[in-house]
């Protein structure tokens, strides 16, 4: 197990009207993902319009924060200051809707143990101060999930 330590620096996002829920839901421990009330699908990243059915009746909704790894890459170079390699960038398929994927880091895992289909769960890392505070959703291997549940 490679124990995760918070990096010295991340480029924190600047939330917009659409993305604020996603970036700040972590304050209450919730992964908020946009959902279309017309067609029922979740979608991400957030937008004022459902890209599938073009409905404007969309709003952020709490998800379980669980999912599976759809694809991952182990980054071995230091592109960004404060984010030392190696680190894992992954696409996470949400348990609620497998067509919805969140790009994030998977941490607390030996890269050798990473695989497509690995069950993961969200946690949040707070950055910024005052009105600029954000809670970046990151993922770690799920602790209490049987793989079959999400297959």
């Amino acid at each position: 197990m490679n124990a995760y330590t918070r990096p010295d620096f991340r480029l924190p996002p600047q939330p917009t009207a659409e993305s604020a829920a996603f970036w700040t839901g972590g304050e209450r421990g919730k992964l908020l993902v946009m959902r279309c009330r017309a067609c029922g699908h979740f979608f991400h990243p957030p937008a004022p319009v459902c890209f599938r059915c073009r409905s404007l009746d969309v709003a952020p909704e709490a998800t379980s924060g669980r999912g599976t790894v759809a694809a991952f890459t182990v980054n071995q170079q230091q592109w960004l200051p404060g984010l030392p390699p190696p680190y894992v960038v992954a696409m996470i398929e949400l348990a609620e809707d497998h067509d919805v994927r969140v790009t994030s880091n998977v941490v607390d895992v030996d890269p050798k143990d990473l695989r497509v289909g690995l069950p993961v769960e969200v946690f949040f890392e707070e950055w910024g101060e005052g009105e600029d505070r954000v809670w970046i959703p990151l993922f770690q291997p799920a602790t209490d999930t049987h793989e079959g549940e999400l297959a």
């Binding site: 480029l11 960004l80 960038v89």
Partner: peptide, 14 residues
């Protein structure tokens, strides 16, 4: 899409 990729360190080769 810098807003979504850079907070998690995703660059073009990734």
């Amino acid at each position: 899409d810098v807003a979504w990729d850079y907070p998690v360190g995703l660059v073009a080769p990734a």
